[in-house]
Design a protein around this nucleic acid. Structure first.
Lengths: 339, 339
DNA sequence: TGGCATTTTGCAATCGATTGCAAAACAAAA
DNA sequence: TTTTGTTTTGCAATCGATTGCAAAATGCCA
């Protein structure tokens, strides 16, 4: 019943009694072939379960209809692959690509070949690259800048290459401002401030603090990787050392916020009463945590679509600009001190 | 500075003054070429930044060194893409593939072409398929069974095709047994019992209840999709209807457990004192929730490696068996009623 | 039916790498 | 120097689909 062997254009051509050219044209919808012929060929192709061989087509057309997505992982930190935010973004990219008829090749800097920057494009495995997360270091990306390699990045948009990203500074500002409005006066920032995106959030935080200099603020910038575990550990440490003196915390991501809150709870420090905590990302879990998490929402769906459309435009030879997407403060329980 | 044009084998052959065959052999490490020649050619290739064209090679060799991973999503439920467990598994697969020199093509049933079952293989975009999550319905997979298509699945292993999965039944049993040991007497199961994997967990749950028939138990099987939101909603509803009478809950996944716990907390029902809750998966967040979640661990790292090695073995023409991985109960706060 | 315009179809080259087989180059032995 | 044996190298076919150009088929009108 099953065909063991896969059909080729040539097989179909023999069966239908027309040339390969005609089969090719019929199947690709060229108007150089009559409807009658096309119908006949299409029927035969369907019947024999024929599919075009992508390798051959790619070779001939010099393109693959495939985009490689690669997730940058800071070397030390092996958890950030599982950051729900990034994965949500990848999901959105996958869908946007799928709807345009593109396949997605996914890898992380850990699983990819050494020379991933060039690998996918040079080998013609993909037509372009989407790079997620600039990490703390521009070096790996600089290989690509001023080359003609088609790529776009997610992250900070204040770069020399095309990027899509959230308005991190505004987000950081809104989050901090909100804490101040809630009456917090000793506000700490938890996150790697030298990481491009986080740095922008930190700048927003800084700005909010400065605009309210009347109040005595604490600007403590702690170096915390992207995981709940890291947030937990740092907070725990501070508490144990009796140096936890905040009444408000801006966490660089929801996962970090969750870790911090857990540490606080374990020490019977109440959130939001004793300490108000605001996260960043609005991962789906944020509303399901207890207390539900006030956070700055990044729109992953829009972000994914944007990345894809920018890249495809680029593949199409168009000139493309970076784009900053709006962020939005979502107020939930973790900062409601008033009532 | 940059080469606009990508080099081909033929270019390198011209530059180095040897034939294409020799270049090909030199670069692929064939011992048919002398070390001296190889060194010379290698140097030239490096200098000109030459990379093999995958399309051409694929066409010639009839293989792609690429595996397609596809995530089955139940149509209605648009959240399960973001299920941390699946994503963790995908991460592990990505790494296992990377270490074997394979690339990973990722898609979900939402973003993939209609005929994804055949698409990736027929078009020769991938050498094989890894399918994650059987969903509630075997139909899409049956297209592949008894075909010669190389694929392996994650999920229930009691199927006619090669699968890798956790010992769900044992896991469900351990979880339920633990609740009984903790003194729970009204234990409910929250999860889609007609979903293949969940059904096995449910069987384990059932078995544990039956082995302890002396105690009065409640076997309520509620139909809950895979998200925290769903767990929350169902629990909330029960509470509002005054029909929440459990003192122990077996949730089919950690996310569901988290949603349930949130609903309980909002109604001032204490976990674990009033109700003990056990999850399934041991996602990284389980230990970071408050209370930390007792759960059944599935080993995603091992699982991913296993899926990959089975598939590659299959590609290699070997006969391959399904495999069930052990599950392990991880006891944390959400079930500690004793003290 | 013949002649011309318009559609359809087919030939053959091309994309870039691999490999069986045969020829060339080299080394060693006679 | 010739012969035999061993390495290296090159020729040419192959993988499957696409497409410019030319040839064939068809339609239309007189």
């Amino acid at each position: 019943m099953k065909k063991k062997k896969l059909m080729t254009l040539s097989d179909i051509s023999k069966i239908s009694g027309v040339s390969e050219s005609t089969v090719s044209r019929a199947l690709s919808g060229s108007k150089l072939v009559s409807d009658k012929t096309r119908a006949k060929i299409q029927a035969i192709a369907d019947e024999h379960n024929f599919t075009i061989n992508a390798a051959a087509r790619n070779l001939r057309l010099q393109k693959t209809k495939t985009v490689a997505v690669i997730i940058l992982i800071s070397s030390g930190n092996d958890q950030s692959v599982s950051d729900p935010f990034m994965l949500s973004l990848v999901g959105s990219i996958a869908e946007a690509l799928g709807s345009k008829g593109y396949d997605m090749l996914l890898s992380t800097t850990r699983s990819a070949p050494q020379d991933w920057q060039r690998h996918y494009f040079d080998t013609r495995k993909a037509d372009g690259l989407i790079i997620i997360g600039q990490g703390e270091d521009d070096a790996p990306l600089n290989v690509l800048v001023d080359s003609t390699y088609p790529f776009v990045t997610w992250g900070s948009t204040a770069k020399s290459y095309t990027g899509v990203g959230s308005d991190n500074r505004k987000g950081g500002y809104l989050a901090t401002r909100h804490l101040i409005d809630q009456g917090c006066r000793r506000i700490g920032f938890f996150g790697k401030a030298h990481h491009a995106e986080i740095h922008e959030r930190w700048q927003g935080y800084k700005q909010a603090l400065e605009e309210n200099e009347a109040a005595a603020m604490i600007d403590t910038t702690l170096d915390v990787p992207f995981t709940a575990q890291a947030g937990y550990k740092v907070a725990k440490q501070l508490i144990n050392d009796n140096s936890f003196t905040y009444d408000g915390i801006v966490a660089a991501s929801d996962m970090i916020a969750i870790g911090i809150i857990k540490a606080l709870k374990e020490s019977a420090i109440n959130v939001p009463k004793d300490v108000a905590v605001v996260g960043f990302d609005d991962i789906s879990l944020a509303s399901m945590y207890h207390p539900s998490l006030t956070t700055v929402r990044q729109d992953t769906v829009h972000g994914g679509e944007m990345l894809v459309s920018k890249l495809l435009a680029k593949l199409n030879g168009e000139e493309v600009q970076s784009e900053t997407l709006p962020t939005q403060l979502v107020i939930r329980q973790s900062t409601q001190r008033s009532k």
